[in-house]
């Protein structure tokens, strides 16, 4: 739904790890903030950054499609059933929306908006390869990085193969539009070849990986690795301190 868009704005030029630590730190911090206005201030700041980076247009739609159903559910569940509800803001026949629940819902919605916006910004301005290379250079296992990249690539690959399997089984008379029982059987006849084929392929891949230094010890090179300079180091530390400050305030 959202992926890397090439560009050379100030966000594109930052190290992937810097962007990841800010996304993580801000997302964690808003969950420590008790008041809705604080959270929405953060959302506003992130939104401003987005606009400054010229990325706002790309983010509005994906953010909205996720936030809207959450918003509706929160309004109903929290507005109607929050145990703290005492003040009624709106009555519709037998149901009454409580102010306390709505406020709590707005708080949670703000937190979600922060998570969505910060991570979307990261993904829009960073290739997965830059991210795993950055993480590997900071000590995360390169095998874990491989698994992330390969998983991102395999999902569309397997979806393509599932179409081939669907064609194959239909050619043998499989009906995918029958009763529920028939459709459950169809599910098994589609998933079966997909799984077995993928596992047999993974055996070949394991050998190929092993022969290409997958288990090699010692230093690795990362062609996608970006510069990690003073600005980045400062930014990562600031992100960490921000979270610690929020945690301190919460505990005190």
């Amino acid at each position: 739904m959202i992926g890397y868009a090439p560009g050379d704005g100030f966000l594109h030029r930052r190290n992937a790890v810097t962007k990841l630590s800010w996304a993580a730190s801000l997302s964690a911090t808003v969950f420590l903030m008790p008041e809705a206005w604080m959270v929405w201030t953060v959302v506003a700041l992130v939104a401003l950054t987005t606009a400054a980076g010229g990325l706002a247009r790309r983010l509005i739609r994906p953010t909205w499609t996720i936030l809207l159903p959450f918003g509706i559910s929160l309004a109903v569940l929290q507005g109607l059933f929050n145990p703290d509800n005492t003040t009624t803001v709106l009555s519709l026949g037998p149901v009454a929306f409580g102010l306390e629940g709505i406020v709590h819902g707005v708080l949670i919605l703000g937190r979600l908006a922060t998570v969505l916006l910060t991570f979307f910004l990261l993904l829009l301005t960073t290739t997965p390869k830059q991210l795993t290379a950055g993480l590997a250079a900071r000590g995360v296992s390169p095998r874990f990085g491989y698994a992330i990249l390969a998983a991102i690539e395999f999902v569309p690959d397997m979806q393509r193969r599932s179409q081939a399997v669907l064609a194959s089984q239909q050619a043998r008379g499989l009906d995918v539009k029958g009763s529920l029982g028939q459709r459950v059987k169809a599910f098994a006849s589609l998933l079966g070849p997909l799984i077995t084929g993928a596992l047999i392929a993974s055996d070949t891949r394991a050998m190929a990986l092993e022969a290409r230094g997958f288990s090699a010890r010692g230093e690795r090179t990362h062609l996608a690795l970006e510069r990690y300079g003073t600005v980045d180091r400062t930014a990562v530390w600031t992100a960490g301190l921000l979270f610690l400050a929020a945690l301190g305030l919460k505990v005190l």
């Binding site: 491989y146 392929a201 190929a208």
Partner: peptide
């Protein structure tokens, strides 16, 4: 070593 299946031997992690 080059394997029989062209695509299966790719790492799958490179674009």
């Amino acid at each position: 070593y080059v394997f029989e299946s062209p695509h299966d031997q790719l790492t799958g992690a490179n674009t």
